[in-house]
């Protein structure tokens, strides 16, 4: 078995300007990369001997509203050979966030990307079937965004019982 190699050094060496930043926090390595080259980066981490991050655990979309670049995507990779994790992060603009899909690299990226699209409205180019996954297909907006309201309804207490009762749309037979 090939000895484990350092993902940061190797990425800087091979991917050069695709690597924008490296963050170490609480023992976790985050490599910030160029969103347009994400497919190349993912293929590199999956196929290079000594890294072999063959398992995509999760894709998380984060909304840093009102900061710009507003959106971030975290790809959590796992190497079953060397039992270690790596986070690849890309930042996307708030206006029309899009980037290439990594479904060609990992099949499991399919539904993770659909979830990111449904919840955050991030568009993945080249995704086989990018449609809503959790919300109804005719839903408006992307609920996980920070500027989307939580949808707070007035809570019924004893002091406003009648008022809420009057407004509540009770079902008919």
């Amino acid at each position: 078995m090939q000895a484990p190699l350092d993902p940061v050094d190797l990425a800087k060496l091979s991917l050069k300007d695709a690597v924008l930043d490296v963050v170490e926090f609480r023992g976790e390595t985050t490599i910030v990369v160029d969103p347009q080259r994400i497919v190349e980066v993912c293929q590199f981490f999956r196929d290079t001997e000594g890294l072999e991050y063959i398992f995509l655990s999760d894709i998380t979309a984060v909304d840093y509203f009102p900061r710009e670049p507003r959106f971030a995507l975290c790809y959590h990779l796992y190497s079953m050979v060397y039992t270690r994790r790596l986070r690849i992060k890309v930042y996307l603009p708030g206006d029309n966030p899009r980037l290439p899909s990594v479904t060609s690299v990992w099949k499991s990226a399919d539904w993770e990307e659909r979830e990111a699209y449904d919840m955050m409205g991030i568009v993945f180019e080249g995704h086989p079937s990018l449609r809503r996954i959790l919300m109804p297909s005719d839903w408006e907006g992307h609920p996980q965004r920070k500027d989307y309201p939580l949808g707070y309804e007035q809570v019924q207490f004893s002091f406003n019982f009648d008022e809420v009762n009057r407004l509540k749309p009770y079902a008919k037979e």
């Binding site: 655990s57 999760d58 998380t60 979309a61 984060v62 909304d63 959590h76 099949k107 499991s108 399919d110 539904w111 979830e115 996954i133």
Partner: peptide
């Protein structure tokens, strides 16, 4: 700020 759960059932159901 953001919590996200990677849940096994989600992946298993879809894949």
């Amino acid at each position: 700020h953001r919590v996200h759960f990677r849940t096994p059932s989600f992946v298993h159901t879809m894949g």
